[in-house]
Design a protein around this nucleic acid. Structure first.
Lengths: 167, 167
DNA sequence: TCAGTTCGTGTATATTTATACATTTGGAAT
DNA sequence: ATTCCAAATGTATAAATATACACGAACTGA
């Protein structure tokens, strides 16, 4: 017994638009998750149909630090960017990486120097010095200081800084 | 019996970069397909590891009219970047040198930050970050990335940049 | 040195997603 | 009107992908 027929196009188009809207407005990690949301809104469908809808809409599934995987719209201006931003710490720090024995901190544009200034003023033993660009800070640790030492220091002395930052 | 150990990081980094290169240069529709290509190039791995690699590299899978589904890099459109670049005439680069595992780019006075900004926006895997002064850019490569990797990257993603620059 | 930790990985499996096939029905063609 | 076709979908399953667990090597700190 089939419930939907060709005359339900209006229904389908509505659903497709709602799917787009949902994916653009929040992080969704699986088709099952999306189906449950749609069901609450009165859309009834199976996973197979949703799979086809997503293909039709050219929705991609992309790894994400917070959610594991999220669906993203094919548009140029990815809503993901904004979502990721809003999910990040208030301090402006985006990520903390280590390379060549140094720490590289990426920040929101324009935030680097103020964060670096604060770090400098910790007068921390572990830190030899910092250099800030516009959105990047190079942090040179004292010799022998480990990555975890630095992370610990920053978490201890600047609580909230690493909130939401990937590292 | 495990074939790879932690000291094979070079191998892993190589593999990650090769995966990026492959995905950027042709349409690949499944992990199995990618594994077969990698195997022909001498990389041995299981599907599980490839799945983790793709997650690490933030590679997304997107519906495609021709191939059904294709993997895409997390970067902004590469070709667009290149076009923007040539349009802006970012040819203020004077020289490219390597020291202490990092790259030092000398530019015409005042050109450093705009070039660094463009480099940052490549979101290149190979680059941990950049810091720009007035006429100097410090580029910190990701661990395991070689000089030639970097030169290749810049030539590929920013054609024209190295034109006339000594290195 | 030695215990504890982290990392990269394989194995096996769970989870997730895509699709072959069947079915219904409105509309098109004759 | 009758027949045919195409779209949309469900069902069942195949295919693809992610991950829990374990392991061994390398690093860390004491």
């Amino acid at each position: 017994m089939y419930k939907y027929t060709r005359t339900d196009m209006k229904n389908r188009n509505e659903r497709l638009m709602e799917i787009r809207r949902l994916i653009g407005s929040r992080n969704i990690s699986s088709q099952d998750e999306l189906i449950k949301i749609l069901e609450k809104q009165g859309y009834e469908m199976t996973q197979a149909t949703l799979s086809r809808d997503l293909k039709y809409l050219k929705v991609a599934k992309m790894p994400d630090d917070q959610a594991g995987y999220v669906y993203i719209l094919p548009d140029k201006e990815q809503v993901v960017e904004a979502a990721e931003l809003s999910g990040r710490g208030l301090s402006g720090l985006i990520s903390l990486n280590f390379a060549q024995g140094m720490a590289i901190l990426r920040t929101l544009p324009g935030h680097a120097s103020s964060i670096a200034y604060t770090i400098d003023n910790l007068d921390a033993y572990e830190i030899s010095g910092t250099i800030a660009g516009d959105d990047t800070i190079l942090l040179i640790p004292r010799d022998g200081v480990s990555r975890s030492d630095l992370v610990n220091l920053l978490q201890l002395r600047m609580p909230g800084l690493l909130q939401g930052a990937s590292h």
